[in-house]
Amino acid sequence: MILEAIITNNVVKIYSGGVKALDGVSLTTEEGSSHALLGPNGAGKTTLIRIITTQIKPTSGSIKVLGFDVISQGSRVRELIGYVPQEMSLWTELSGFENMLIYSKLYGIPSAQRKDIIEELLEFMELRDTANRLVKTYSGGMIRRLEIAIALMRKPRVLILDEPTIGLDPRARSLVWSKLLSFKKEHDMTIFFATHYMDEAERYADKVTLLNRGKVIIEDSPVRLKEIVGGNSITIKLHNSRDRDYIVESLKNSEFKITILDEKSLSFSVNNISRDLPRIIEAIYKLGVIVEGVELGEKTLDDVFIALTGMRVEETPGRLREVLSTRRMIRRGG
């Protein structure tokens, strides 16, 4: 049975300075799924995550985590979640091992099991060799992996991450995600994460909620979202115009949706270009048709965001002052 890991219903947060960070956010995260909250800086992602993790209270609206209300049953919620904030959440003057040891005690892990659990997670996160170094000597990727290791120590049912790979290089990012996903698979954990990297949401989330200026723009799987802007396409240019109808006729029962663009070109709508391109080429090759050229039209969630809001995800809109003052407000707690 699919349960809802997180349900938010019409959540509004107005900071005392009058900034409306969330303006009626309703979303649902299925248990066992990976759910991304995607939006530009200042969209309200961190505010929503801080409300879900029981740090601040919403102005109105309700939020449930695995059936527990975050406002009235905060301590129950804290027992079920793991959380990694956007900023660094470690004691940098202590070693990686010491940080894990301290948290294992705070989590109430029995002393007989502590060492094994810590060793296992350090190994899993590829931090074993550096476990005795002070955290202040760690790289960004190592810090993130250690923070995640700490959050996983108690095998949380829901792991909540705020910008998990912000500032990391591509290699470090993919390492963080491969670890996260393999743990998720093994323990059937739900992952809820905020990001402003659209490729991260696209690659690692089953469901994406687009958030802008405190409002949900749309919520769906990355593939379905991209269908809004036409999905990915592969355009085939033919040498000979009479081959066009021959291909359409021969492949009409195939899985691909084919659109005729002009006399000598056809467009295939596909979900995954790297998987579908060789299959299309192979099918055409079998028909003995000469292909003159191929054009790839890969749509991203950024295209969806632009189509729906008129601006890009990864660009901070030109209201720096507003963003800064909102951040200050979030920090101060208004």
Partner: peptide, 14 residues
């Protein structure tokens, strides 16, 4: 608090 450490500490069930 600035580093984010307290945010995490206060979401631990203690």
């Amino acid at each position: 608090r600035e580093a984010g450490l307290l945010k995490r500490l206060l979401t631990v069930p203690i």
